[in-house]
Design a protein around this nucleic acid. Structure first.
Lengths: 154, 154
DNA sequence: TCTTGTTTTAGAATTATTATTGAAATGTAC
DNA sequence: GTACATTTCAATAATAATTCTAAAACAAGA
């Protein structure tokens, strides 16, 4: 029953944002909400194709574009060659591990950030992308330990 | 004469970083240093093809990859579908105008940024990307004035 | 139900980027 | 200086993500 209610809530969420809650859109959004891994369009497609055998890649891209435009999800440009998507809309930072490629969220307080240089600019979106090595990969292969500082030292 | 000296300095710069100063690499670096607009690979190619008629896109990509790996330039992932390049290596923020596409630099003090959540992570690179509308485009077409806040209010 | 507009599909097309490969340049040993 | 080995270059070909197109399926309102 809880799944059904969850789905109904998502429908309402979409409707409230002026987005028609089509099947594909709901499924894509649901996947993004349950998987916290910031999947790529391809990953979403692969995950949903078993459940929606007629699904096409273009539908996934369409759904992502519509959801993103409506502000229901956000598009990460943390990687140059592929987009990643995030259902969390509050402001937070993203860290991508250069070894395993995983993208982690982290809380960040933009309040202290100074950028007086931007007077006159209308700022709509602020993205903070960090890159480096995640704790797991640091443990696994210390051979990767080139130069660099620990985050905690900053 | 000053141009010649400039070129000689760039040669030295590259050599000091262990990069052989080939003609294409020098020209690409020089272009990035004089044009502050964070051009794409395509823009660099178009700009240099008149001067180097034999130039190929791949050469530009190769040069950019080598320069980037050597830390002489940095690669921006501010756009999903194409990379942009920056000869400035000090830490600073980037603002992309959603109307004209231009990318502006802005000074930023990361010192105040809080991100305790990243303990255990090895942070190698920090990118701050803002998006919105630049002063010029705000003047030009006020029709684009949807919702959003002024940067100075943050 | 019929109409009208929207969404999905499948595959072709496009675009940025990377891999490959032969040629040229450079380095090294004699 | 010459012969050989190695590195680097740059052009073509290939790849992979994304978008486009046209047709079919669907949904909502009259």
């Amino acid at each position: 029953m809880r799944v059904v209610e969850f789905a109904r809530d998502l429908k309402e969420l979409l409707r409230s944002r002026g987005v028609r809650p089509s099947y594909v859109r709901l499924k894509v959004l649901q996947y993004l909400l349950t998987e916290k891994t910031h999947p790529t369009a391809e990953e979403i497609y692969r995950a949903l194709i078993s459940e929606i055998p007629t699904l096409s890649r273009a539908s996934v891209y369409n759904a992502l574009a519509v959801l993103s435009e409506a502000g229901v999800i956000q598009t990460l440009t943390i990687e140059r060659h592929e987009g990643r998507y995030d259902a969390k809309t509050e402001e937070h930072g993203h860290f991508q591990c250069e070894v395993c490629g995983r993208v982690y969220d982290f809380a960040v307080d933009f309040g202290f950030l100074r950028h007086e240089a931007l007077e006159g600019f209308l700022v709509r979106k602020r993205d903070l992308y960090f890159r480096g090595i995640c704790p797991e990969c640091r443990k696994g292969g210390e051979s990767h330990g080139k130069s660099g500082q620990d985050a905690s030292s900053w």
